[in-house]
Computed example of a mutant assay.
Amino acid sequence: MSDRLPLPAELTAAQRDAVDRITAGPRGEISGPFVPLLRSPELMTRLQLVGEHIRFGGVLDDDLRELVILTVARHWDQGYEWAFHHPIAVAKGVPLEVIESVGQGNRPHTGRPELCLVWDLVDELQRTGGVGDEVYTAAVKALGEEQVVAAVATAGYYTTLAMVMNVARTPPPPGGARLPSR
């Protein structure tokens, strides 16, 4: 399948402005979901600012954030998200056994307990559209309300990016970890 929305050969003034804004920030480049989102430069700019906060300034522990992202990537079969965030997850302390479980769509059973709780939260939310009292209470007890809200918002943000890239058929970055087949 070919990339439906690659980087445009010529950018409008609004697109150039959006590219300048994203490349001046901590991302330093335009890639992945921001290429198709460039068709709507104002939306891309606003979305990437949410993502910038989540990745570079949010309250969710780094390993938990990366677990949320990989769980969303697995749910949406999103190869770019998986390949891009797999090495970040490893660097942020997510054990390879946990990543392998998530890649197979399974609940992790190793690593710190909060990883399993966050997986439970995001998995139940993705499967049912809500979260029951048992999972919610356990997550709030372990993480606090602020991190639970951050985990849910992170899942929502990366779900948006996954849907955009799936429609655009954004290819994974070369040489990255491949999302396991189901």
Rank of each mutant, 00 (worst) to 15 (best):
G144A: 03
R182T: 11
R55I: 08
D62S: 13
A168E: 03
T71I: 04
F34W: 15
R39C: 05
E52F: 04
L38T: 01
F34R: 10
L161A: 12
D62G: 04
A91W: 01
L64H: 09
V148K: 07
S40N: 14
T23H: 01
S101Q: 14
G51W: 12
G111I: 11
L11F: 04
R21N: 03
A24N: 03
T23F: 09
Y136H: 15
G28S: 04
W119A: 02
E124H: 02
T159P: 01
L38H: 06
V152R: 12
V131H: 00
L47N: 02
P26F: 03
P172H: 08
D20K: 13
E114F: 09
L37Y: 10
V149L: 05
G132I: 01
T23I: 01
R46D: 12
T71H: 05
D62P: 02
E42N: 12
A9K: 15
H75I: 01
L96K: 12
A155F: 03
M1F: 06
P95L: 10
W82L: 13
A24H: 02
I99V: 11
E42I: 09
L11M: 02
A24P: 00
L179K: 05
Q126Y: 04
R27H: 10
L143R: 11
E124I: 09
D61W: 08
G57N: 09
T170M: 06
Q126D: 02
G28D: 01
Q126M: 15
Y80T: 05
P108S: 13
L179Y: 03
D133C: 02
D133K: 07
L161C: 11
S40M: 14
L37F: 14
W76F: 15
R16Q: 15
G105H: 11
E97M: 07
A73C: 11
G79Q: 14
Y157T: 07
D61N: 12
A139N: 01
L67V: 13
G58H: 07
R39E: 03
V102M: 09
N106G: 05
V152P: 04
G32S: 15
A14Q: 11
E42G: 07
V140M: 10
V135P: 00
S31N: 11
E52G: 15
L49E: 14
E97S: 15
L47C: 00
L60V: 12
D133M: 08
A83L: 05
A139K: 07
A91M: 03
A150S: 13
S31V: 09
D62I: 03
P173D: 10
A150M: 06
S40G: 04
D62H: 09
M163C: 08
K141F: 03
T110M: 05
A155K: 06
R39S: 12
D77N: 13
R169Y: 02
V35R: 13
G111R: 14
E42K: 15
V148P: 01
G57H: 12
Q147P: 00
P113L: 12
T160I: 06
R4T: 01
R112M: 11
